[in-house]
Amino acid sequence: MKYLVCISKTPETTAKIAFKDGNSTFDTDGVQFILNPYDEWYALVKAIELKEANGGTVTVINVGGAGNDTIIRKALAIGADEAVRVNADAKSGFFVAKQIAEYAKANQFDLILLGKETIDYNGSEVGAMVAEFMELPYLSYGTDLQINEGVATIKRDIEGGSETSKTSLPLVVSAAKGMAEQRIPNMRGIMMAKRKPLNVIEPVACEDLSIVVSYSLPAGKSSVKMIDPENMDELVRLLQEEAKVI
């Protein structure tokens, strides 16, 4: 089996969010980037688990600039066998999905795994787009995945519960919490990662169909109103009359 895992980078959650060039660009100055948790903890580890159980290879793919090689090496250290970086600025989910789909079509994977979303823009779009470009089934928010004689059984999160589906391979799946357990790279993994192949390829032509043109900051919360703990009637009154939420 050949597994492809799509990995992205995202600012670390405590990063300061600021913009430059007239609020048109995210200011990455001093921002630390991490491997997107859903990609790292769930999608990647699930692919590695499947490979450990059934054999095969795990390839990770990222669409981004050379600055992303650090997170790609981390994925290799966790256990991916090889990596591909599509050398382009990822400006839209559509562009990213097109690049991934082109590579995947040419290289025939049985299973394409993604994170359920990136934690910065929460797009949750790329998986469905890759699946559509490739005309494959897509199951989102997977929390469990079993493959038996070419049939995949996927349990996925839906509002208020879960849904279990069966489908054929090849297949695109996005992974949510529950799909696998986080793995911390060990020293041996980190050393081996340095020798694993990281191929850089050039993008195929693709227009961005939608892009961010500007950023703004939300209206700041007015400072908190402290309520006397002895007077919960007052809190209830405020919730009813001022906030109008109950």
């Binding site: 989910g93 559509f94 999905a97 929460n122 797009g123 949750s124 779009e125 790329v126 998986g127 469905a128 787009m129 890759v130 699946a131 559509e132 470009f133 897509y138 199951l139 989102s140 928010y141 996925r156 999160d157 839906i158 509002e159 849904e163 169909l209 939608s210």
Partner: peptide
């Protein structure tokens, strides 16, 4: 939702329509 998000990206590709989620 889990359903809406699963079709959004497909519709964008099918219809060549710019998408924004959420």
């Amino acid at each position: 939702t889990s359903t809406g998000k699963s079709v959004l990206g497909r519709l964008s590709v099918k219809l060549n329509a710019g998408s924004v989620s959420g």
